[in-house]
C-alpha cells in the first residue's frame, strides 16, 4: 500500500518537471521508447508514480538512469505531458536524494544559492592568493595540490557515501538478493557504460550526439589525468604538452556546441534547460578554454605578467570541483553507470 503524497508532486516541479499531471495513462511514451523493455518499462510508470507522489517507489527505482532522453516520448505524448523532462527531473531529484549532505537538493532548487557558493569560492581563492601576495608560481604550486586533494576529498567524503546510499535504496531496501559473484560479473557493464555510454546508442538517430558525448568524456577524463598526474602546466615533455592542448580544445569545442544547441533548443532534450544544466556546460567550456589559455601563456612566457588568467582558471576549477562535481550535474556520470551496474546485478539476481 502506498499513500498519495501531493507534496512530492509539487517538489518534483522544483526540479524542472512540468505538466506531467496531464498524463492520461495511454502508454504512448513507453511504447515509443527504444530503451524500454518488458522488465524495465518506462517512462509511463515513472510518470504515474510522480503524479501520485509515491516517494518510496521513485527513490528505489533505477529506471530514470536507464533513460538517455532522446525526447521521443515527449514528442509523441498526446497530452503534452513532457515525460522526457520528467525523467530528467527525476534524475536531478534522485541525485538530491542520494546526497547525504542535502546540498544537492538546495543547489538544484535554487540557482542564487549556487551563485553564492561560487562567490564564496572566488573570495576564498582571492584571500588565499592575497596571502601568497599574488605570487603566481606559488599559487600554481598550491593549485596543483588543491586539484589532487579536492579529487580525493570529494570522492571519499561525498561521492562514495552517496553511491553506497544509492545501492542501499535501489538494491538493499528492495531486498534484491544478489550473489557476491553478480557484483563481480557486472563490473564489466559498469566500466563499459561509464566510459562509452553505449546504451544511448539505442536511442533513435543518436550516433552523432553519442560520438560528441563520447569524445567529451574521454577528453575530460584525459585532461584531468594530464593536468593532475602528468602535471601539464609544468611539464617540459612535448608529447604531454600537445596532448593537453588537444584535450582542452576537444572540451571547449564540444561544449561550445552543447551550449549552442541549448540556446537554439533544436532538440527535444535541449528545450528545457535548468540552471544546473547551464552551469555544467558553461563551466566545462570555461575549464577547457582557461586551461588552454593558461598553458598558452606559459608557453609564450606571458603568465608572469598575466596572473589573472591562472586565477580565473583556478576559480573555475574550484567552483567545478567543490560544487558542480559533488552536488551538481557532474554526478550523472557516476549514477548513470552505477545505475546500469545495479540494473545488471538486479537482472543477475533473478
Amino acid at each position: 500500500m502506498a499513500l498519495i503524497q501531493p507534496d512530492l508532486t509539487k517538489e518534483l516541479k522544483k526540479y524542472g518537471a512540468f505538466d506531467f499531471n496531464a498524463c492520461y495513462n495511454c502508454g504512448t511514451c513507453t511504447s515509443v521508447c527504444t530503451l524500454s523493455t518488458e522488465d524495465n518499462s518506462f517512462p509511463r510508470e515513472m510518470v504515474r508514480y510522480s503524479v501520485l507522489g509515491l516517494e518510496d517507489d521513485l527513490k528505489s527505482s533505477l529506471k530514470p538512469w536507464l533513460c538517455y532522453y532522446c525526447g521521443q516520448c515527449t514528442e509523441n505524448c498526446p497530452q503534452e505531458a513532457s515525460p522526457g523532462e520528467l525523467m530528467m527531473s527525476l534524475r536531478r531529484w534522485l541525485t538530491a536524494k542520494y546526497d547525504w549532505t542535502g546540498l544537492s537538493g538546495l543547489f538544484y532548487k535554487s540557482w542564487p544559492l549556487t551563485v553564492l557558493g561560487f562567490i564564496l569560492i572566488l573570495a576564498a581563492e582571492l584571500g588565499f592568493a592575497a596571502r601568497l601576495h599574488f605570487h603566481i608560481d606559488r599559487i600554481m604550486y598550491y593549485g596543483h595540490y588543491f586539484e589532487m586533494f579536492s579529487i580525493l576529498g570529494v570522492f571519499t567524503i561525498i561521492l562514495l557515501p552517496n553511491i553506497i546510499r544509492m545501492w542501499y535504496f535501489t538494491i538493499l531496501k528492495r531486498k534484491i538478493k544478489a550473489p557476491i559473484k553478480a557484483y563481480y560479473t557486472a563490473i564489466s557493464d559498469l566500466v563499459v557504460h561509464m566510459f562509452t555510454q553505449k546504451r544511448s546508442l539505442d536511442c533513435d538517430d543518436n550516433q552523432f550526439r553519442w560520438f560528441e558525448h563520447f569524445i567529451l568524456v574521454i577528453g575530460y577524463l584525459s585532461l584531468l589525468f594530464t593536468t593532475v598526474f602528468l602535471n601539464w602546466f609544468e611539464t617540459h615533455n612535448l608529447f604531454i604538452n600537445i596532448l593537453g592542448y588537444v584535450e582542452s580544445i576537444v572540451i571547449f569545442v564540444v561544449t561550445f556546441d552543447f551550449v549552442n544547441s541549448r540556446i537554439k533548443k533544436n532538440k527535444e532534450m535541449n528545450k528545457f534547460s535548468q540552471p544546473s544544466d547551464w552551469f555544467f556546460v558553461i563551466w566545462l567550456f570555461l575549464m577547457g578554454v582557461t586551461a588552454f589559455v593558461v598553458r598558452l601563456f606559459i608557453d609564450l612566457n606571458l603568465i608572469e605578467t598575466n596572473s589573472w588568467a591562472y586565477l580565473f582558471h583556478l576559480m573555475i576549477l574550484g567552483q567545478w570541483a567543490l560544487i558542480i562535481v559533488p552536488f551538481g550535474k557532474w554526478t550523472h556520470f557516476l549514477y548513470r553507470s552505477f545505475g546500469m551496474y545495479f540494473a545488471k546485478i538486479e537482472e543477475l539476481a533473478k
Binding site: M1, A2, L3, I4, N25, R48, Y49, L52, L54
Partner: peptide, 11 residues
Amino acid sequence: ILTAGKTIETD
C-alpha cells in the same frame, strides 16, 4: 489499475 494494480490510499 493505472498503477499496475498497486493499492493506493489517500486521506
